[in-house]
Design a protein around this nucleic acid. Sequence first.
DNA 1: CGAGGCCTTGACCCAGCTCAAATAAGGTGG
DNA 2: CCACCTTATTTGAGCTGGGTCAAGGCCTCG
Lengths: 241, 241
Amino acid sequence: MILKIKEDLKSYLSSVPLFSSLKETTLAGMAQYASALVTPKGTTLFAPDSANDKFYIVQSGWIKLYRETLSGEEAIVDILTSGNFFGEIGLAGTETMPYGAEVIEDAHIMALPRFLLAEEVMRNSLFGLAMLQSLTRQKMHRDMEIEHRTVQTAPQRIGCFLLKLCKANSEGKETVLHLPYEKSVIASRLGMKSETFSRALNQLRTDVGITVKGSTVTIHDLKKLVDFTCSACSSSFPCAD
Amino acid sequence: MILKIKEDLKSYLSSVPLFSSLKETTLAGMAQYASALVTPKGTTLFAPDSANDKFYIVQSGWIKLYRETLSGEEAIVDILTSGNFFGEIGLAGTETMPYGAEVIEDAHIMALPRFLLAEEVMRNSLFGLAMLQSLTRQKMHRDMEIEHRTVQTAPQRIGCFLLKLCKANSEGKETVLHLPYEKSVIASRLGMKSETFSRALNQLRTDVGITVKGSTVTIHDLKKLVDFTCSACSSSFPCAD
DNA sequence: CGAGGCCTTGACCCAGCTCAAATAAGGTGG
DNA sequence: CCACCTTATTTGAGCTGGGTCAAGGCCTCG
């Protein structure tokens, strides 16, 4: 399922914000070791608790990071897309990944051996700082996540998810957007079952006026949605992402 | 409520694991700017969303980090004790803290201006790496937290909490331990109401044989507790903390 | 056109929440 | 050290959001 293609890895790497402080020669060195993966939906990059010494950067598509219990229950930890990275966990000395990674929408991914990162952190403190900032921000998102799951209802969590999707084009009375991956995955990402997701979406439809047709959602009154959603959150729309 | 005492700040700083890579002179420099706070239970160090430019290291006692919604609901993000730190969030450029910090058991805390950290990260990449590892691990804990709240029942979450408390002295058939802070805070930390906590603790008493007297808990059969608790988790006791 | 995946709906259940009241546990001043 | 007040914890009763189980509906792809 995993193809490797050789093209201009270096130029891609240089376009990744995280790597903006890297010198040309460093990027070239990394490109030597990097591989580009073209992975179709359904590909498992690695299983939970498997050994792994790579660092991944998502170029396009969607990747799900998840943990699962002995009894087979799954908790989605995060869902990543273009520009996001994962696998940095090994920096803390862990040899195995505490989560698994699966492609949920056809993706292009770049993989680097992790030792390159550690080396670069030691050599280039600007890069270290960039990593630090990124992780700090990620940790904060987890905190938000925990808050959301504690204080928000299912329809509110969905509202929050929709709002994040339309951040960019928040102007105009009517916003049309596209759910980026399967509803059942969104449900699980938001910590609910898909039946609940379905019903909660209906509730949003009648209560705050959105229209759902397949994976297309139209928000007719943004303000109404914001009021409904953010009333049970510590930060309000447009919130720190 | 906050007293400043001048004593040997530097020697304390040098004993903090996070700072193990710092040179004597650096530590001395930091000590110049550091202040030691003696804070009684109930002290608010800073409110959610307040501006703050400090980095805190807990020497003793317990600190609660929390977020709260407009309607006054509170979600506890983390509870910290000796050796833990917080306030690093500013490294990511945020000027305000997305959470508040309150002392929940009399504490000694060290505060440093945050710019010292940023400086040191730039100067000393070993320190940068240490921060990075620490944050990586913290992020992973958040992931665990999210998993726990999704897949574990209330009694299981309590079991998990108890197991963490007796990690150190896990030998011996009978383990006696002390709840480190108020039950209502533990409840909230575990994402449940205190009524639920109380009932769930009773359930643990009858189902896995523990004894509760005030804030003292006796575990009569560790294995039984582990079996009960960890069956709905991706990692088993003694799990990566 | 048929098979297999998603998604939705209905019926019912239950863990955990809410409201209210009774107890316990500290903490304070005398 | 005691009486008193305040705050934490426990318990009871009843409710409900979201889960479970099972049956269709719908869409995609071979």
